[in-house]
Amino acid sequence: MSAAGVQRVVVRMLFDPRFRDAVYADPAAALAATDLTAEERGWVVRPDRRAYATDVTRQARALLALAEELPAATAWARAAGRDPAEFFASPAWHGCVEARGVMTLAYAGWLAEGADAAQATLVALEAAVARGRRGLGGPRGAAGTVALAPGAALVTTTEGALAWWDAVRGAAAAGTPLPAPVDGPPCVVLIAVAADGASTAEVLAEGLAGLLTAAQAPQPRAALEAAGRALGLDAADATEIVDELLASDVLIAR
């Protein structure tokens, strides 16, 4: 086992008191899913167990950061009676640490577990921003391809969802009751995150939504323009739109 593997277990024990107790109670059983040796399992339980708990605000600080990135989804979860701190006792958190994942996205995934439609919408929108902020929006493509940019992501939702999302964030910040979700026809929203972290969200017209949906798979520019023509654009418009999307960093050419 590597030192990094031991360190990951220490991180999990620092953040999750129940896991910590389980490890102290039966190291072999609690760490059966890891590759830690018997000697290494002994190391992590050698310190006084209370030493793991000396930073009493560790979980709260992490939750604050998570709630900053997913404010509406977190508020909706709380309003539904769910304690966000339970995330740190979840397989999503432990799996994230072991797999070197992104905690914010793991948290988004945990919020989405068993979510109603409203919560699923909030998670999808805010997770798209989080992915864009980390350059994980668009896919990696080979040289010579065009695709949705790393700072961009598409979310399929309903018209009115963006205004409702804003209203939920506002209510969460103000501590007022959260507004009920609105119903509307389906639409595609483009989330775009700039280099400075600022994000925008806009409902796309049908043709543009189709073109960008196609761009979720990296492809030669000619193929993307052909997809645009198949959606009803004429050749000149398809070329012009792709140029504009590249210039505005919604698409990226590699």
Partner: peptide, 16 residues
């Protein structure tokens, strides 16, 4: 930090 360098992954732990 644990995992990749990320705005929410900061901590400070001694080495193993």
């Amino acid at each position: 930090h644990f995992g990749a360098r990320d705005r929410n992954h900061m901590l400070l732990l001694p080495p193993v």
